[in-house]
């Protein structure tokens, strides 16, 4: 190890300076720098803007997709909430309708019973009135027939017992009445 260090330490410095000692050729270096700068210029002028644009576009698309997804999620959440509210409202209305229908049904049954009862009472009343009327009619018919018979019998008795003398007297009396 010591021998190696000594060897370098004892070596003579080249005459072109440190760069030459390092093996750098100025001309080549300048050309490489120029070529590098040209490359940087070309890349900056044509390649990077395109790449940057592509990346920006992609970012924009990703952002809008994210926004759309967020919007859709929000809309879905709102729809779910609305559906939930509607279901709740529908259940409530259905319960009301069932309750009302039950009430109406009870009311209808009650009304029907009442109506049937009234009709039955009416029929009984009407039948009683009819019977009563028929009895009255029969009584009247009997009375009238009796009257007719009495009248006929009276006429027959008078006719049989009437003499010419009585008839004459009756007529003369009638004439006097007319006068």
């Amino acid at each position: 190890m010591e021998s190696i260090l000594l060897q370098f330490g004892s070596a003579e410095a080249p005459s072109g300076g440190i760069m030459e000692s390092l093996g750098v050729d100025w001309q080549t270096l300048i050309l490489q720098i120029i070529a590098f700068l040209i490359l940087v210029f070309l890349l900056g002028k044509y390649v990077f803007p395109t790449l940057t644009k592509i990346l920006d576009d992609r970012q924009t698309k990703i952002d809008s997709a994210n926004k759309a997804a967020e919007h859709a999620k929000k809309a879905a959440d709102e729809a779910e909430t609305r559906v939930s509210e509607l279901l709740k409202k529908a259940r409530h209305e259905a319960a009301d309708i069932i309750s009302l229908a039950k009430l109406e049904s009870d009311s209808n049954i009650s009304a029907s019973e009442e109506k049937a009862k009234k009709q039955a009472e009416q029929i009984v009343k009407s039948a009683q009135a009819d019977i009563s009327r028929q009895i009255d009619d029969a009584k009247k018919a009997l009375y009238n027939e009796t009257l007719e018979l009495v009248s006929l019998a009276t006429g027959k008795i008078i006719g049989e017992s009437m003499t010419d003398k009585l008839d004459k007297d009756f007529i003369e009396k009638s004439i006097k009445e007319i006068k």
């Binding site: 009276t154 006429g155 008078i158 006719g159 009437m162 008839d167 009756f170 009445e177 007319i178």
Partner: peptide, 21 residues
Amino acid sequence: IAGVKIEIPDKRIDKSVSRQL
């Protein structure tokens, strides 16, 4: 039956027993 019935154009006088009945 008995009595008399007189009919003139504008009047009818019925003094019969059947009418009374």
